[in-house]
Simulated scan of single mutants.
Amino acid sequence: MAGTKKGNLIFVGPLPPPILGESIALQSLYKSEKLHQRYKVKKINLSRKDFEHPGALSFDKLFTDSFAILYSGFLSLAMKNPILYISISQTKMGLLRDCMMIQACKVLGRGKVVTHLHGNNLGGTIDATSGIAQKFIVNALRKIDVGIVLGGKLAPNYRGHVKRVEVVSNGIPADFILKSEVGQGKKKRGISLLYLSNLMFEKGYVELIKATTALIQEGHDLRLDLVGGIQNESEFQEVKRYIAVNEVDQRIQYHGLKQGEEKKRFFLESDMMALPTKYKVEGQPMSIIEGMAAGLPIISSDRGIIAELIKDCGVVIDPTVEGVKEAIKNLVIDDAERMRLGRMSRETFEEYYTEDKYTDSLIAIFDEL
């Protein structure tokens, strides 16, 4: 694109902190050198402190949303034919805010709109609205030029109001874990299981702990490492007491939130990964893609497009204690299957889920518009 004028892009969505799958994915695009080479980018960061209650009203949220709407309107007027790229909200108040920004871009800037859905609850939010609010939302959705989803199964979330829907899978840097590093940190004895996500009840970490405890008490040489931020402190303290009462605190350990090389070490030292999520807005967890990069077999549930993501390299389970326990036990006792799924994880990651594939696909959509 050397010698040609840069396009204008208004970039809207939550960037870290907090560290969530959506914010990590958005940050990788925002930091893309290629994006800034081709576009003059103005960002509107919608990061929120309270990820436990994302739709809750607060003064801080009202101020942030009001500023976002006004600033997007100003940028739409000031920039020539901008593209509004927005990580569309899945809460009612957030969706109304986003629709106001879409309308501003179309009316004030005569620009193009690309929305990116990082989950699986937009359709439910649309259905839950009525009257003037629903008419306003539907009118805005029909003005979207391209709606992006993480997998084809999530396209119905737009409820048919967006004419063009494209699939772009998440991706992580190809050098996060090199192929030559896979398997290098694994311990000599026992099987090491990794849970890496925020410790939310909806993510299934409680069921995972109970299943692992039962297997340890049955005599299996197994350990579980929990890595991530705590969402509910009182719930977590109950879980700690359960671990202590069952005398498995040497085998099941919580390590806090880890990033960079520390996080990478946990992936390299593990034999398999589990995320028995029940989270209703689950899309395509970044942590699972990271586990695939590390060559780990994945145990997870049919939420969002997880089943599609791990169909060749994991086990899809019912996120109950018994469902989790059976899947773990089968892979603990079957070394050959565990190794096979691990190899498929790495191969699938390399073919489909690198950061370059993710950012290039999005930039290609912007370029076309």
Rank of each mutant, 00 (worst) to 15 (best):
Q90G: 08
R343P: 06
I216F: 06
T125V: 14
H255D: 14
K43F: 08
Y205I: 11
I44D: 02
N246Y: 05
V138P: 00
G124C: 09
G171F: 01
K42P: 09
H36T: 15
E350P: 01
K311E: 14
K106E: 07
S300W: 02
V332A: 07
T277M: 05
L257A: 14
S345D: 09
K135D: 11
I299C: 04
E351V: 12
K153D: 13
K112E: 11
G73H: 00
G304E: 10
V168S: 05
I126M: 05
D356H: 13
R97N: 05
G256T: 09
L35T: 09
G124R: 10
T64Y: 02
Q90L: 08
A128P: 07
G323R: 01
H36G: 11
F59N: 08
T4E: 10
S192C: 06
S89G: 10
H116Y: 15
S345F: 12
E233N: 07
S23Q: 02
K263H: 02
S23N: 02
V239T: 14
R97C: 08
F74S: 14
D225P: 08
G314R: 00
S87G: 09
D225F: 07
D318N: 15
L15T: 05
G229Y: 01
R340N: 10
V321Y: 01
K280P: 15
K263W: 04
F63D: 06
R241L: 14
I365K: 00
T4C: 13
S180F: 13
N330H: 13
I306N: 02
A140G: 07
I44E: 02
I305L: 04
D334K: 09
P285L: 03
I298H: 03
I10G: 02
L70H: 06
H161F: 14
Q259I: 11
E337F: 14
F67K: 05
V182L: 06
K143H: 06
D249T: 05
